[in-house]
Design a binder for these strands. Structure first.
Lengths: 215, 215
DNA sequence: GGATGTTGTAATTGAATGATTACAAGATAG
DNA sequence: CTATCTTGTAATCATTCAATTACAACATCC
């Protein structure tokens, strides 16, 4: 199409509007930061994952830190907006109102953090409490979720604790890649099942299928 | 004592047996790795925290990675040994046998991860699932805890899930330094209290006291 | 009291990496 | 057609940092 030399090998990177390229970089950065951590990730790895050159990544976001903060803000935003949407859905009052809403929120959460980039970017932020900027964002985000469950969802304290605790355990089991060793150690799958009591078979089905496919 | 020049300013670093120095380095490394992560921490920071020179740190452990693995192994070991000790304690059978044991284990866990180095080293390991060596250790450690609760403590699945989930939530709230903003945002303390339902007032008291002192 | 082992550091090196600069090529307006 | 803006890269710089080397001071053994 737009090649001038007939047998060009390395395609000269399509020209793409900055706004769109920005999204590509953020998506790539989410994965790379998630895998290697803020310090462990390099702007060059992000660039390669996004299919562009390293200087372009830096110029687009100014510094590596600003890029990371943007990735984190996006992840938190998706989480909060997603939850708020579900809570806003009309629901009829009843005995199991809280339980049902918790299940819906849980499913949404699972959907979200199956994106490993989002999961790990969030967890990276959790352990950056010492960093004034990142730490403050992590605390603020966590508190906003708490207030949402308390005020908008109307959860009683025990339901909040259980919901958050289960979420953090799920985070951890996914982060350590427990499903990766389902076939090596049956206890791994047992722990995963024990964690979800079948109430989230969707996820388990997906990850187990992945594992089976890989075996 | 062993000063040759009377007015020596920079003390020439006391000679200490290698084994003891090793422990000092491991203690310092636990803190530094916990705060900055594996990639973010430098051997020089560890050295300074331990009060020795950077090359000595490297020579003692060969590489930075080996040092980190040793720190992680220590943390996991303290956790596992500590739990096993409590489980082995004689206890009379009864209705609340599991609940009581869970409370004891919880208290021990809290004691342990109040050492921020241990808390964060463990959490660093959790999000290193992609790293073959660190990831494998994290998975193995988590599974060992699971088996201990199931086989040695005799916990039913629900008790295991609840125990682990509460632990992970506690990890997270401590990691993001929620107690640091108790005085800025009353919801922070409320979330912390909601999380523990007063069953672990020891901890809350300690961190609140810290915060008050700082205010 | 010399030889050997242990405990330590200063100086340096080589690689990695975030950031900058300078430049090129395509699009768009006048 | 020329000027300008946008989208992109190659080359390079300055810094950081893990690791190495070479050496010094103390201790212990014969």
């Amino acid at each position: 199409m737009n090649e001038t030399s007939g047998t060009a090998a390395a395609q000269p990177t399509e020209r793409i509007p900055a706004a769109e390229r920005r999204e590509q970089i953020l998506a790539a950065a989410s994965v790379v930061f998630g895998e290697r951590g803020y310090s462990g990730a390099t702007t060059d790895q992000v660039a390669k994952a996004a299919g562009i050159s390293q200087p372009y990544v830096v110029r687009m976001f100014g510094t590596k830190e600003k890029l990371f903060l943007e990735v984190l803000a996006r992840a938190l935003d998706r989480l909060i907006v997603g939850f708020r949407q579900i809570i806003a859905e009309p629901r009829e009052p009843g005995d199991d109102e809280v339980e049902l809403l918790a299940a819906r929120l849980g499913a949404a959460y699972v959907d979200l953090i199956e994106d490993r980039g989002i999961l790990l970017s969030l967890m990276q932020a959790f352990i950056s409490g010492h960093n004034p900027v990142v730490g403050a964002k992590a605390r603020a985000g966590f508190l906003e979720i708490y207030r949402m469950l308390r005020d908008e969802a109307g959860f009683p304290p025990d339901a909040i604790r259980e919901f958050l605790a289960d979420g953090m355990l799920f985070n951890t089991l996914l982060a350590i890649r427990l499903p990766d060793i389902f076939d090596e150690d049956p206890d791994a799958e047992e722990l995963m099942r024990c964690t979800f009591r079948g109430k989230l078979d969707v996820v388990l089905g997906a990850t187990a299928a992945e594992a089976a496919e890989h075996a």
